[in-house]
Amino acid sequence: MTGPTPAQDAPLLVLEDVEATYNHAIVALRGVSLAVRRGEIRALLGANGAGKTTTLKAVSHLLPAERGQITRGHIRFDGEIVERTSPADLVRRGLVQVLEGRHCFRSLTVEENLLTGALGRSASRSEAQTDLERVYAFFPRLKEKRRTSAGLTSGGEQQMTAIGRALMARPRLLVLDEPSMGLAPLVVEAIFSTLRKLNETEGLTLLVAEQNSTVALRYAHRATVLENGRAVLEGPAAELRAREDIKAFYLGLRTPHRDGPLGGDSRSAA
């Protein structure tokens, strides 16, 4: 699914010194730089409030929808300047995000949720059907629940639905925000091993923000650590995993402030 591109060795996603604020007042990112290579699984680690969610929202150009803005720096996805591309166009070009807290369409069935993922790229009915079967092959559990309202399924099934919905858009870069949040360890393993399978069999590039650094470092190739809105450390996952001090320094449970004014629970009852 990764089409041949002229510069195969150029990073798929580049952030250059990105500074971001909410309401022009709260500074959430103070200069984040990172480059995600094609075909890798990149983990984005950090404590609560380090800027993981803001970084990902900036990447998908979703900050304006939450009254946030990029005040400095640039983000490029496959050469395209993200700040000048609408979220819908980014999805069409292959940058798709699975939001923190899953954000399934609760009143829609699991299958309808998946189909909304194909709406964005205006897939034909038969294309959507093919992709649907592909998603069901990765997550057989969803096939059993296809007619159930997403709001009535378990947390793990909702996470699978959210990932499946993103896959329906045929991403080249899949961005995931805290996929392990609130899930039982076994379910977390199942989800991460499916992500690895997607990476290995389809060459899908992944950028995963995780608070659960233990799991993330086991599945990722490389990891970037954020602290106070800055990327402070980067290296191969195996290396970081071996260093106990990193956990104590950067990934502890210090919580100076939340990720943004709205955090992940921005869903008001509309």
Binding site: S60, L62, A65, E66, S86, P87, A88, L90, V91, R92, V96, Q97, L99, H103, C104, F105, R106, S107, L108, E112, L115, T116, G117, L119, G120, R121, R165, A166, A169, S266, R267, A270
Partner: peptide, 19 residues
């Protein structure tokens, strides 16, 4: 379907690529 998605969760609809 797009209507229902937007009505359910506008932010998720945006992230999924709906205009």
């Amino acid at each position: 379907l797009a209507f229902r998605a937007v009505a359910d969760d506008p932010f998720a609809a945006l992230a999924v690529g709906l205009r």
